[in-house]
Simulated assay, not measured.
Amino acid sequence: MLTATIVLADDHELVRQGLCSLLDGEPGIHVLGETSDSSKVLPLCRRLKPQVLVLDLMMPGPGGLAILQQVRQRLPNIKVVVISMHKQEAYVARALLSGASAYVPKDAPADHLVEAIWAVRTGKTYLSPHLDRQAVEQYLALEQEKQDAYELLTGREKEVLPLVAQSLTSKRIAEIMQISPRTVEIYRRNMMRKMGFRNLLDVIRYAQQKGLIEPPPQSPNDIRLNDSK
């Protein structure tokens, strides 16, 4: 019989208790451990070695996408199911590009989470029916084009990108890279053109998604998965 061992990461006590009760009540699913602290997710997964991590991206502490990437890079056998209050295709696509195998909004029926867990255990990906799959796929294609474009950047243009994303001035970037501000401007223009960035916000979003800079602190949320009817 196929089984699924779980580590659950969510900073809301009531949500964790509800999800633990839900999942432990499902035949074949066993919750090995839980945490409310994103900085403890990786150590807990290393110790318990679950088959699936159910991860809320909006926990306090290190950014959820950064934690997701760390788990997938260092513990590649663990599949990650993301639960989140966000349903916009940008959030979903970034989670998938960062290594998530499934994405379930917190306002989805609880059985969507169960379906997601069994899907990833059999090597499949899962998007809740509450999500606009077509919009997510279009966004993924666009982001993939940007990833391909990144490989076309020169070494210096790659150095400039995260510095620009930190909103540093050309003068400050020039000091860091030990080049002239004029040369920085040339690298900046070339990088923006090759990547198809329209403004600084595009640069910041891409750098955060790719893990080139730390994402901003994320506020907690209290949206919960609905009970399945």
Rank of each mutant, 00 (worst) to 15 (best):
L2F: 11
L2P: 15
T5C: 09
H12P: 09
L14G: 03
L14M: 07
V15E: 07
L22K: 01
L23N: 01
D24G: 11
G25K: 08
E26G: 10
P27E: 02
P27Y: 02
I29Q: 05
H30D: 10
V31M: 14
L32M: 03
E34S: 06
E34A: 07
E34V: 13
T35I: 02
S36K: 10
S38W: 03
S38G: 07
K40G: 07
P43R: 06
L44N: 11
Q51R: 08
L55C: 13
L55M: 11
D56A: 04
L57P: 11
M58I: 04
M59G: 13
I67H: 00
L68R: 02
R72H: 08
Q73Y: 15
R74F: 09
N77H: 07
N77V: 05
I78S: 01
V80L: 04
V81S: 05
Q88F: 01
A90W: 09
A90I: 13
Y91V: 04
V92I: 05
A93H: 00
A95I: 11
A95N: 04
G99E: 00
A100S: 04
A100I: 04
S101F: 03
Y103V: 12
P105T: 15
K106N: 02
D107H: 03
D107K: 11
A108F: 00
A110E: 07
D111S: 09
H112I: 03
H112W: 02
V114P: 15
E115C: 01
A116F: 06
A116D: 03
I117K: 08
W118L: 09
A119S: 08
V120Y: 02
T122P: 08
L127M: 12
S128Q: 00
L131I: 06
D132Y: 00
E143D: 10
Q144L: 14
Q144G: 07
K146Y: 02
Q147D: 15
Q147K: 14
Q147G: 14
A149D: 03
Y150Q: 05
T154Q: 08
K158L: 05
P162W: 09
P162R: 14
T169D: 01
S170Y: 05
K171T: 10
K171E: 08
K171I: 12
I173T: 01
A174D: 06
E175D: 06
Q178R: 14
E185T: 07
E185H: 14
E185K: 09
I186D: 04
M191V: 12
G196N: 03
F197V: 06
R198P: 00
N199C: 12
L200E: 05
D202M: 01
V203S: 10
Y206E: 02
A207E: 03
A207L: 07
Q209A: 10
Q209E: 02
Q209D: 04
K210F: 12
K210T: 04
G211A: 15
Q218P: 03
S219R: 01
R224M: 15
R224S: 14
K229V: 12
K229R: 14
